[in-house]
């Protein structure tokens, strides 16, 4: 008896070791990415100083004064800000339709559309917006097209996420809310949505992180211009992930350094937003 017990313990230990080894192996690439971005990013930013790196335009061919990512950062803020605002305005009513009017045809249709769009390749979204807004309406790369493409990418995701947050409100709370006798819309907006507000906020934050990090929808919409601040919606502009994509491919050291620095900034922003979202999720669980 004790023998087989020992054997089983050994088996457990070996099993555990294998699992730990596999876990480390799967986390290694992530650690490597973090390491690379931090080391090369810090190197690039330190050369010019954080403030100047964040505010100055880039000089990708000037090893003496490589400049920074100011215009791209502002462009990213403009694009993500617009996308998150418009997407939130549309996603919230859509999620109410999905979650609180279940059973109706329009509700099921909305959910199906949202689920399909979530899986839709983002490059195709960019391509479609290009065909309409860039090629047809404006006649050139423009920030508006980028904002529209980003909106389309994050909107379905946010609608699904918010509808799941609404569905997560306990049935008892939902019934009690309706039982107070307000109209259906009032009940949802005054009682049920606030009860799900953290979950909805998490969806908005993750949407924001995606909007800030997506590259494919911007490839043939925004264009990529980094010399000065381009805030005009119907003109060409830039964004941080697009800048990384474009600068890393240039055969010049200063351009590649700029890309690494930009990568570190982007990573910091996204990790920050994600951490905030995690914090909110944790608070949800405590409640």
């Amino acid at each position: 008896m004790p023998r087989s017990l020992r054997a089983r313990k050994l088996e457990n230990a070996v099993g555990l070791a294998v699992i730990v080894a596999l876990a480390i192996a799967s986390v290694l690439p992530l650690i490597h990415i973090l390491y690379m971005v931090i080391v090369r990013g810090v190197e690039a930013i330190a050369r010019i100083g954080l403030y100047r790196f964040l505010t100055e335009p880039p000089h990708p061919f000037d090893p003496q004064n490589p400049g920074g990512i100011g215009p791209a950062l502002v462009g990213s803020l403009e694009l993500s800000g617009l996308a998150i605002a418009v997407a939130t305005l549309i996603a919230l009513p859509a999620s109410v339709l999905i979650a609180e009017f279940r059973g109706s045809r329009i509700s099921r249709g909305t959910l199906l559309l949202a689920l399909t769009l979530v899986e839709f390749p983002t490059i195709l979204v960019g391509l479609t917006v290009y065909a309409v807004l860039v090629d047809h309406v404006v006649g050139g790369y423009n920030m508006l097209a980028g904002a529209v493409a980003l909106t389309l990418v994050i909107l379905p995701y946010m609608a699904v996420q918010a509808s799941e947050a609404l569905r997560g409100v306990p049935e008892g709370v939902r019934e009690a809310a309706y039982s107070l006798g307000a109209t259906r819309l009032k009940t949802v907006y005054a009682l049920i949505a606030p009860a799900a507000r953290r979950g909805i906020l998490v969806g908005i934050l993750i949407g924001l992180a995606r909007a800030a990090g997506e590259t494919a929808p911007l490839l043939f919409t925004v264009g990529g211009a980094y010399e000065g601040y381009h805030l005009c919606l119907y003109k060409v502009g830039g964004a941080v992930p697009l800048m990384i994509y474009q600068f890393i491919q240039m055969p010049y050291k200063p351009a590649q350094d700029l890309a690494w620095g930009a990568a570190l900034v982007l990573m910091t922003i996204i990790v920050g937003v994600m951490l905030l979202a995690r914090l909110l999720v944790k608070e949800v669980k405590i409640l």
Partner: peptide, 16 residues
């Protein structure tokens, strides 16, 4: 629903 309000088996105040 307003003229005949209901109280349920499980207490369910709005948690937020």
């Amino acid at each position: 629903r307003r003229r005949a309000t209901m109280v349920f088996q499980d207490p369910n105040p709005f948690p937020h």
